[in-house]
Write a protein that binds this DNA or RNA. Structure first.
Lengths: 193, 193
DNA sequence: TGCCAAATATGATGCCTGTCATGTATAAGT
DNA sequence: ACTTATACATGACAGGCATCATATTTGGCA
């Protein structure tokens, strides 16, 4: 059954949204094409009308996630707090795509790595300008260092099976970055990107 | 054909070694049981004489990697340099198991996460005591923060498809940690853990 | 209004993989 | 030396998955 052109576009968006969530949650390999389509409310048949292959879907899903309004650090302190919060740690599917996908992307298609790299760049730039507003010298260096710390700590905290250690990793990394950047604690938890 | 008891033990070790390399290189899902056995010089048949399942192999392989003499930071500066070197970035199979496996382990068996967590703990302790020798206050916090930065930067550098950006991430994170810890640059590249 | 191509659904195919069943040679214990 | 249990090899099986083939419904356009 044929659908409206705008229906089709909406379907495509739903597929990309579902793929973004599922891929973050379970990894590229563990998610089947049929599963994505079902999550989008369709069957597996129409898939190849939208995408050339599963690899194509992966690349486009990554680009889609990053295109979809990344949370920039409006307030740097709040951003750090939110990023390293238990809430964000437990919200893999809708949390930071970088933390959820980095390791997997390395083994994916060049197109996928390209899309991911583009996301990295904009995220680094965002953090750098947020830092520059406070203290300018070496803003880019601080942005890269802080970004690496954030991603590393979040992924470690998610992997650890001991909640205490997991919490400690988040907490201490937050303090460590705070000391480094000269940024103290803020508050306001929320799922960040 | 039956083999010596010590041959059998040697075979088991070869299987675990091969699994450790292959898993780091390609991820758990992308490596088949038959592939591991072949890399160990055997066929897939004998596998279930050594391990209960592929999940069992995964958990034991993780423990095996960490048990196999981790490079502790004898000299902290040299360790940081080696960890964030291009050489280590390009040596995934024999490099840091944490950086290579974290994201995958999250979705594995409880036993696998347990083995991984144990590896984290000892690594944090090792770094902490190396830091404590220099400047004691908050050695554990610094260890956790530095560890998260190292792992995060390495994984990011490996994923990025632009060699320039990849090198910049390694370089700047090294400098950022150095400034934070009060540790300046050393030299001596080598594959670290 | 009626034709046609497009968007999805249903169904099929071939490959890969984890696991199990069976065969075979031989180390180990007597 | 003879027996037996064992470590590994060969082969088979079932399930899952990406992808393709075909059917069906119906928007879009004349």
């Amino acid at each position: 059954m044929r659908v409206t052109r705008e229906q089709m576009q909406a379907n495509r968006t739903r597929i990309l949204d579902a793929a973004g969530w599922l891929f973050r949650e379970k990894g590229f390999d563990a998610v089947s094409v049929a599963e994505v389509m079902k999550a989008a409310g369709l069957t597996h048949g129409g898939f190849y009308g939208h995408f050339e292959s599963k690899d194509d879907l992966i690349a486009q899903a990554i680009a889609h996630i990053f295109s979809g309004g990344l949370q920039g650090p409006d307030d740097l302190n709040a951003y750090l707090d939110a990023y390293l919060s238990p809430l964000h740690r437990d919200s893999v599917a809708k949390g930071c795509p970088t933390a959820a996908l980095i390791a997997d992307v390395r083994r994916q298609t060049p197109a996928a790595r390209l899309a991911m790299t583009a996301g990295f760049r904009s995220q680094i730039d965002r953090i750098a300008s947020a830092i520059a507003e406070t203290k300018s010298p070496n803003a880019r260096r601080a942005a890269i260092g802080a970004w690496a710390s954030l991603v590393g700590a979040l992924v470690l905290a998610r992997t650890v099976d001991d909640p205490t250690l997991s919490g400690e990793i988040l907490e201490e990394t937050r303090n460590w970055i705070g000391g480094k950047t000269g940024l103290s604690r803020g508050d306001e938890p929320a799922v960040a990107t």
